[in-house]
């Protein structure tokens, strides 16, 4: 078994209207339940928007704190799920369901072990 990080990329901008968001959240909950039932679910989280982000970096001997996000982009990490899967095809299968549930692109990356 390997672990995969499924990252949800969402466009910068206001959150969708509740009537759009509501069914998405229901689909996501159902998917998380299915993942848990299948024994693949490790961890999942949704993130607050990037204007809540703070960046911390070392500069010389000091640690510098600045307002985030780290990089301005049209899309940003909106949430992620970590799953256990035997191979990439299995991970891509779950990622496909996550893409359908969120209607957003998903980046699949293997976790180093």
């Amino acid at each position: 078994m390997a672990q995969y990080l499924l990252s949800v990329y969402q466009p910068v901008g206001p959150a969708p209207a509740p009537e759009v968001l509501e069914p998405i959240m229901q689909d996501l909950e159902a998917l998380n339940r299915d993942m848990k039932a299948a024994g693949v679910w490790v961890f999942a989280a949704g993130l607050h928007p990037t204007d809540t982000a703070t960046v911390v970096r070392q500069q010389g001997t000091e640690v510098l704190i600045t307002d985030g996000p780290f990089a301005e982009a049209k899309e940003h990490l909106g949430g992620f799920t970590v799953i256990d899967a035997p191979d990439l095809d299995a991970a891509l299968g779950w990622a496909g369901r996550l893409a359908r549930a969120t209607t957003l692109p998903i980046e699949v990356r293997p976790v180093q072990h």
Binding site: A2, P86, D87, L88, D89, V108, P110, Q112
Partner: peptide, 14 residues
């Protein structure tokens, strides 16, 4: 190797 692309022939709907 790292992403574990499987070594098999896809069947059916795939």
């Amino acid at each position: 190797r790292d992403a574990r692309i499987p070594y098999r022939v896809p069947r059916g709907a795939e």
